[in-house]
Computed example of a mutant assay.
Amino acid sequence: MSIKQFLDKILKNWPVKVTCFVMAVLIYFFHQISTIDKKTFVVPLEVKSEGAMVLSGGYERHRNVKIIVRARAEQLASVSEKDLRAYVDLSSQSSAGQHNFPVLLDLEERILLMDPLEITASPDSVPLSIEERDVKFVGIRPSVSGIPSHGYTLSKITSDPATVRVEGPRSVVSKITYMPTEEVSVQNATSDVTKKVSVLNRNSLISVGTGTFSVNARIVPQGMVKTFSDIPVSFDNLRDDLAVSGEPVFVDVIVEGELLDIEKLSADSVRGSVDCSFILTPGHYEVPVSVTVPLGLTVNSKSRETLSLDVVLKPEETLPDSSAVNDGEEKDAENTQPQEEMEAVPEDVTDIPQSDAVPEPQIQGV
């Protein structure tokens, strides 16, 4: 067949042939459309920063992106968010400032084998700010909650290790002075509390070292001071023949110790005294004042450090006068003598009543 004959056959009834071809294409196109489905996924936008530049701003508005997948309905049913990954690569820019970074997609291999397949990201690029990377170590500041038991207090809190590595944009890292930790509760504690905790990072622009930190909360008895007024001062070791003249002496005392011990302390347990063992004769003396308290407590201060004493001899006891005693004895003797004489009766005297006497008989002569 010559070329002329071939062209004649093609051009024969060409309007009909063109119409059939167009209709076939349309039928194929509509068939493909009828078998392809669409599904939209929302995935987090990751930031890849392996170079000298790191993200410094703009990410808050573009945390997530939409990924639209077109494929056959039976194939699309097996696709999920974990098969799709969206990210931006900051290494494409080397200068600080704001730049538009294209959104790149990373798909599972089985997704790439689908046919037909159409994938788009919305938005397809995002404006982000970048800065130079900075690294430094900052201190750990443990967080504590709760109140220790009555009579105890939080004395000190430490962390081991005491520092952590912080990395991020220079303008942000330069302002960080410490990193907080998870809370350690000391509620109703009466002894030290130790707990393993992690660092709390509330800034998405920085990254911190991983691992746990051992936090120790030191719990100690709570201190307290209390004032006792008008504590009497006693004069110890004073000679029996000496005495201190004047009114009784009192002292005000401030006692220091643990709260639970101070709360149980009464004024009767606080004693003020002066040592008079060196005083041998009457006179005026300046003596130091001593205060004693129960074991475990200390005297913070007292209102008197010294005391002025006037020491005198004790007056002798008055004895009865000896002459007066003798006169009294003589008078008592006089008063008792007549009574003794009256009580004495002679042995040869007998009292016989006159009427009872027997008359003597008379003899007459014949």
Results as ranks from 00 to 15, higher is better:
L45C: 07
I36Q: 10
N300D: 12
I157S: 08
E360Y: 13
L319C: 00
V65H: 06
D230N: 15
G246N: 03
G283A: 00
F213K: 02
A333T: 10
S174G: 04
S191L: 01
P169H: 07
E316A: 10
E108K: 15
P248M: 04
V138I: 04
P161M: 03
D83T: 08
L76A: 03
R85C: 02
A333V: 06
S149E: 09
I262N: 07
D351M: 11
V358I: 14
Q354D: 12
R110H: 15
L242P: 13
I206F: 02
P282S: 04
D83Q: 09
A344S: 11
P142M: 02
T158N: 11
A243V: 09
P180L: 03
L104Y: 14
G58N: 03
D268G: 09
F29W: 12
P116F: 02
L7Y: 14
A96G: 08
S159D: 01
E46T: 10
T281A: 04
Q75Y: 12
S229Q: 14
I3Y: 14
F21T: 12
H62C: 03
P221G: 08
P102Q: 03
D240S: 14
I279T: 07
A52R: 15
E256I: 04
I363S: 15
E109G: 13
E131D: 01
Y285G: 06
A267G: 10
D83P: 02
L205K: 12
P361L: 01
W14I: 06
V22L: 08
